[in-house]
Every structure is written in structure tokens, then in C-alpha cells.
Design a protein around this nucleic acid. Structure first.
Lengths: 327, 327
DNA sequence: TTGAAAGCGATACCAT
DNA sequence: ATGGTATCGCTTTCAA
């Protein structure tokens, strides 16, 4: 591989000059800069990241720890992360917690051993990993998590979902979660409940919370109870509800409306297309990286924790409640 | 950060001894090894990857270039890649081609600038990127691609899907693709066709190939034509077919059977659960990495290109063809 | 404006 | 078995 020494020799200048010329810090005459960059180009010079890292103490690499790479919203998040990191000149090294706490700890250790400058951690549900002192960590969790650095505003997302159905005339709700240990899901559900309770002062509303770890709810019973609004914590659950219902000849959106979370790739494809609460992945990624950047350059003032607003995306899976369907 | 020099000073030995002790190459007395490792442990010593990379010329990092991170099978593949790379002591740096060829080229360049030892490339459909000379690249495409290093055997997968439905008595097929430019999809479809044609010597069979870029097929017409077997190139398409059909009161698997590809996460969740042809992601990843490992250590004999067998996974979306439904 | 030289931390060769 | 030291490629300080 071609290096600065070779360029220096070719041009009869010193490596220091080559380095300065390439760094563009203006210590060198324009002519020399011209010459050096031209020759560098010619030789296809690529600076050695190892040497630079050794000298500067920074690798320019961030680590991304996911609870389980097959987690639903991972692709979008990894994509957002990569794009935003790239804007700030960072590369992204991925690590997988493999679904358990030891894996998570190991993933963090490994990233450190690989010399990352900082880590973005999406914690496993229900765990509070002990963080390393050696590199800054940005935690993407939920606003109710003590150590949260940035997250979507899951409560507000839940409120948004509930409000959308309330506004369409729905009064009786099924709230569907998957895993009670997930703080994210708990926040989404609590947002939904808040909004429904708030409207109960002026309206006759009801809701029932179910977690599928206790078994999938009986949709026929749900219908008998006059439920027309289903709010789930994930598009995957929405998909399950819609298709299970179809097998019982309960049709969405004719018989009930449903809103999920995360705008997973299939949501636009399945019929009916699924309404969803979408996180602003770009904004979340960009803030996580801004936090790490600040921490890495040892800024005094680190960005305060924030919860990024979620947005409602209405598709075919919601419709107005028919008067007949109301209590 | 603590380094070898510090350990050497603490123990009154030389850095060379520390390095040798830690490397465990047996040049040092057992006592000293003991001492050194103990002190290293105490101080939480982590070797500097930058220094090691500079000296050895290897970063221990592989790059993974995806066509578009939101591509359907990405999470599984990234996970498999990361796990297999980890086994061989490599880290994985992700890069996103962002759906276009320039992005793909840029992604490759960037990984090189970050000092990766090798690259796993999943090419964008219909592109033949020019590869760098500086690092080895393993291409994961399809067996009909000249430069393929390892891939799933998409043809065989297509045959498997067709055979499964033929065996269940289906005779009239709709083959559904998404994008004609995709070599992977072309191979899957051609495998299906091969199998159907082969059986046409003894059976009365028919098939119709459609690409959804030409519009989504008319499922009512399909039913009128007596089609009971639907083979798609992706579970996402299967999902669309099943749910679009449900809206027309054409039920799967009562009225037709469907098999897709890739075993996407929702396939087990939607009702009916979707039958699919699954790639052996672990095997593919492991072979890609074996290839790169060999290329990196400049082995004479690089592994030959291989196509890894795909497997059939039968779920609720297929059933025997009812005699009445046959021609 | 340019150059010489000192490191960054680990490795490996050559002495001892 | 152990130590001294040159080296990897780059950045940065200090001199010229």
C-alpha cells in the first residue's frame, strides 16, 4: 500500500509536509498542496486508519448493540444509525446481544476491545447493563428509563393511537401487548390508557389490556363485548389480529379498526394496509450520535435526554365506528 | 488506558516479555506468564487494536455491504454474518448501498478506508460492481452469477416449492415475481418452471408467470382459470396474495395454496402461517467468511463457489388440492 | 513555509 | 528465558 513516506520521497518533500498538505490545515503553500494531492490521487493513496487511530486515540468507529438482531424494527434503525453516523464521519460496528444479558455484556466488551469510540445500546427488555467507564454509551430505551439518552416518545405514541380511534368514534378498546417485561411496550400501553381515561370524563369508554404471553385473546368474545378499537404495541401483533380475525370472518376495518407501532415493512403490503405509529428513526439516530460525539470530544455540556415525538400513519386498517357498533 | 509498558514497569520486566507472555507463545517461564496475566487482569488491560493493526497489517474487521438495509432478509443475514464472523475472530462493519449503484461503490470505498480486511458484498440487483484490488471480496448472489462466491441454491429452492405443491395434487400454477432485474428472483422462478415442466411429461399442468411491476395479478381471474397453486419469490408477496385474496373471499389454504421464500419474521405469525423456502443463513455466512479468511491469509486454494441447498418449511398456507379444483 | 524527529502501542527479530 | 530495539504509518511539536 502507498503511504505518506512514498509520496514524500516521490516529491522530494518531507512526510510532515505531506501530512499537513493532506490535512488541509493551511500550513503548506498552495503549490505543494496541489502537488501532494495530485500524487496521492495518482497512487490511490488511502490513509492508514490504524496508524491514525494509534496516533490520535480515536478509531472513528461506533458500536451498535442490538438486543437481538432479528428484533422487528432493527433494519430501519440500523439503517438510520449507519446513515447518521456516516454524516459525522463514523463507521458502525454491529454487535448482537443474542437475546440474553450475558450476550449483551459480552457484546459491549467486544466492541471496546475492537476500539470503538462510543456505543449505542438498545437494552434488552428488563435489563440494566453495567456500563463501561472507558467509552461513552448512548442508551436508546424509553423516557421512563433512568439511563435513557434518547428514545421515541412511546407514551405520546400510545396517546396518539388512542386519540385517532377515539376521534373516529370508537369507544370500546382492546389494548394488546406482547411482553410485560418490556418498558417500551409498557409505556406505549400506558399512553393509550392515559388518553382513554382522559376522554372518559366526557365519553362512555372502556378498555381491556391483554398480553399475549397470557394467550392470544378471544376475538369472538371481543366482538360480543362491542370492542371496535384495537391498539397493539407492534405491527406484528396488528398483523396477527387482523388475520386471525379474518379466519373468524371478523373483518378489518369493517368490524374493527387497529393501529400498531413501528411501521414495519409489511405494513404497507398486507391488506388491509396497517395503520401505525412510526418512530422518527433518523432523528433518534442523529441525536444518539450527537450525544456520543459530544461525549467523545469531552464536551462539558452533554445533550439532555430527549423523547422524540412519534407520528401517526393512517392506512386502511382504521375506519369510523359505525353507530350500531357503539354501546 | 493501561498498556504493556505499564505492566512491564510495574513488574520490572520488559515490554517484550509482557507481549510474549500475553501472546502465550511459550517463550516465557510459567511464573512470569502468571504474574503478567494477573497484573493485566488487575489493571483491566485491553490491547490496543490500532497498534496491533498497524503492526500486523490486519484490522480483524470485515465489511458487510447490503443493497438496502431494509431489504427483507437483512436482519437474519446480518445476524448470521455477525455470529459467524465472531467465531473466526472478526468484527463486522456495516455499510449501506442505499439502493443505488454509486452508493454501492461508495460503500465499498468507505469500508476500505476504514481498514477492513475483507468485504462481504450482496450486490444490488442487476449490477456488477467493479471490485477493489486491495481487499478480497466475497459475493453473495446466486449460482448463475459469474462472480458468485457463495449463495443459496435459488433454483433448487424454486424446484422444491413447485414439487411440494405438485405432490399435493396442484396442477395449475401462478408464479409471482417482483422485479425482473433480480437474478435471484429469476433463478427462483426458473427453478419452479423447471420442476413444473419436468412433471408435464406425465401430468397435465399449466403455469403463468407474473411480475408485480406489471401490476398485481387479478386473483378472481386466477381462480376462474383453476389455479390452486401460487408460488412467490418472497414471503412478502405471499402475504400480499393471501390477504388480497381474503378481501375477495378467496381463502388460503381452502381455495389455493401458497409458498414463498426467506422465512421472514411475520411468516410464522400471520394466519394462515406461511409456508416458505428457507435459506441456510448460517451455512452461507460461514462459507463467505471461510472464503475471506482464506483470501486474507493468501491461501493458494480458495474455496470454490457453492450454492447452499434451501429447505422447505410447510405451514398452514398449503393443503392438498381438492379433486374438484383440478382441471 | 518546510523539515526533523518524537511518539502512539504492540510485535518480532536479534542479542544476551 | 528475557531484554533491547526497530518498525508499522501517521500526527504534532519544535526548529530552521
Amino acid at each position: 500500500m502507498t503511504n505518506q513516506k512514498q509520496i514524500a520521497r516521490d516529491l522530494g518533500v518531507s512526510v510532515a509536509t505531506v501530512s499537513n498538505a493532506l490535512a488541509g490545515k493551511g500550513r503548506v503553500s498552495a503549490d505543494v498542496v496541489e502537488l501532494v494531492t495530485a500524487r496521492a490521487q495518482q497512487l490511490g493513496y488511502v490513509p492508514s486508519p490504524a496508524a491514525r487511530a494509534l496516533k490520535t486515540g480515536r478509531s472513528g468507529i461506533l458500536g451498535l448493540v442490538m438486543p437481538d438482531i432479528t428484533m422487528q424494527a432493527f433494519p430501519e434503525f440500523a439503517q438510520g444509525m449507519e446513515a447518521e453516523a456516516d454524516k459525522s464521519g463514523f463507521g458502525v460496528l454491529i454487535a448482537n446481544a443474542r437475546g440474553h444479558e450475558e450476550g449483551q455484556t459480552k457484546a459491549i466488551q467486544q466492541l471496546i476491545q475492537r476500539g470503538v469510540d462510543g456505543i449505542v445500546l438498545i437494552p434488552l427488555r428488563g435489563t440494566t447493563p453495567d456500563l463501561p467507564f472507558s467509552v461513552p454509551v448512548a442508551i436508546v430505551s424509553t423516557q421512563n428509563d433512568q439511563r435513557n439518552t434518547v428514545s421515541a416518545n412511546h407514551c405520546q405514541g400510545g396517546e396518539l393511537a388512542a386519540k385517532a380511534l377515539l376521534d373516529l368514534g370508537h369507544r370500546n378498546f382492546l389494548l394488546l401487548g406482547e411482553d410485560t417485561r418490556s418498558q417500551v411496550q409498557a409505556d406505549r400501553i400506558s399512553g393509550m390508557i392515559d388518553m382513554i381515561k382522559r376522554s372518559s370524563e366526557t365519553l362512555a369508554v372502556s378498555y381491556d389490556v391483554r398480553w399475549i404471553t397470557d394467550g392470544f385473546p378471544d376475538l369472538l368474545e371481543m366482538q360480543r363485548n362491542g370492542v371496535t378499537g384495537v391498539l397493539t404495541v407492534s405491527d406484528l401483533l396488528s398483523l396477527r389480529v387482523v388475520t386471525e380475525a379474518a379466519m373468524l370472518d371478523i373483518k378489518c376495518p369493517k368490524d374493527f379498526s387497529v393501529i400498531g407501532f413501528d411501521d414495519l415493512p409489511f405494513a404497507k403490503v398486507v391488506r388491509p394496509t396497517l395503520s401505525t405509529i412510526t418512530p422518527d428513526v433518523t432523528e433518534i439516530s442523529s441525536r444518539a450520535i450527537a450525544y456520543l460525539s459530544a461525549a467523545i470530544r469531552q464536551d462539558e455540556h452533554l445533550p439532555k435526554p430527549v423523547a422524540v415525538e412519534m407520528a401517526l400513519c393512517l392506512r386502511e386498517s382504521v375506519a369510523s365506528a359505525k353507530p350500531a357498533a357503539r354501546h
